[in-house]
Design a protein around this nucleic acid. Structure first.
Lengths: 144, 144
DNA sequence: AAGTACGGTTTCATGATGAAACCATTGCAA
DNA sequence: TTGCAATGGTTTCATCATGAAACCGTACTT
C-alpha cells in the first residue's frame, strides 16, 4: 500500500491515515456501511480493478475494520465495531464535501435523520462542560 | 495524483476524497492547522520527498484548501476557509485513531479545550431537534 | 453435460512515489 | 565584494503501486 509507514507515529491522525488513508478504503467502508457485503457488489459500486479490491479488502480485514465471514463458497465482508466507528469520519468528510465540493445546495445526496426525514445537523465538537468548540478553541498536548 | 477521478461523483464523500484522499494531503493540512507555513517546515515535519511535497502543495492550492502567499523570496502556505473547515475531519480521524490505533489510553497526544485544559468530548451528530444520532439512526436520500 | 455467474489470481503496461542530485535566489559574514 | 550556507524548489531516475485484461476454479442452472 503506502511506501512510508505511519503506524508507529505518535499522532493518532497519522495512525488513522495509515489504516484508511488510501484512495479506496474509506469508499469501501462507506459502501459497507450502506449495506454492501459481497465482493461483486463492491466492485460494481466502485468500478475499481478486482485485484486492487482484493488487496484493499485484505488490508481492511487485517486492520480489523472488516470481518470476512464465510458465506457459502465465498466471503461476506462486514464491518466490525472498529469499522462502524468510522461513521463519524465519513460524516465529517460528507459534510465538508457537501459544502465545499458542490455549488451551493447542489449536492444530490442528503444524510437524513431516519425518524423525521430531516437533514442532520453539522457535527459538533464540545468541551467537557458543553461549550461548542472551534479549531481556535483547542490545543494539542503531549502526555507526560 | 489519483488515477481515477472522483470529482464528478454524486457522493460528497467521494468528492472530498478526490481533494484530500491521498496519503499526504490531510497531514499537510494538520500541520498547517498547527501553524506551519513554510515549505521547509512541512518537509521537516513530514519527512516526505521534496518533489512530492511540491506536488501536494500545488494540488492543495489548486483545490482552494491552501493559499500560497508570497513572503520575501518564497511562499507561505496558509489555510483558506475551506482548508480550516477540514478541522472536523481531522478531529474525527484523531478520535478514531486514539481509540482504535493505540492500546487503551496509550495515545501520547491529546486534544484539549484551550480554556480549561480538559480533553474535548467526542464529536456528536445531532438531529434537527437535538437528538444524538448514530449511524443506524440515519439514512441517505437522493434529492429529487 | 454444458453454460454461466461469482470470486478471485496472474500478468503486464503505466502512472505515482521517493531518493538523490542539481540549481537559483536570498541573507549573512569575512 | 566575494564567498558561503540556507532555503525552496526542480530534474532525473529507479522502484513500487495501480489498473486493465485475461485467466482460472468452484458452484449453481438448465
Amino acid at each position: 500500500m503506502r511506501r512510508t509507514s505511519l503506524n508507529e507515529a505518535d499522532c493518532p491522525i497519522a495512525r488513522a491515515l495509515d489504516a484508511v488513508g488510501d484512495w479506496w478504503s474509506l469508499l469501501i467502508v462507506r459502501d459497507a456501511m450502506f449495506g454492501l457485503r459481497r465482493f461483486g457488489e463492491f466492485q460494481k459500486s466502485l468500478g475499481m480493478a478486482k485485484n486492487i479490491l482484493t488487496a484493499r479488502l485484505r488490508g481492511l480485514v487485517a486492520a480489523g475494520i472488516l470481518d470476512a465471514v464465510p458465506n457459502g463458497a465465498h466471503n461476506d465482508y462486514v464491518l466490525t465495531r472498529k469499522g462502524r466507528d468510522l461513521f463519524t469520519v465519513l460524516v465529517a468528510l460528507r459534510q465538508w464535501g457537501e459544502t465545499h465540493q458542490f455549488p451551493e445546495g447542489a449536492c444530490p445526496v442528503e444524510l437524513l435523520d431516519r425518524e423525521n426525514r430531516q437533514p442532520v445537523g453539522a457535527l459538533e465538537l464540545r468541551a467537557a462542560d458543553g461549550r461548542r468548540l472551534s479549531a481556535d478553541d483547542t490545543m494539542i498536548r503531549l502526555r507526560n
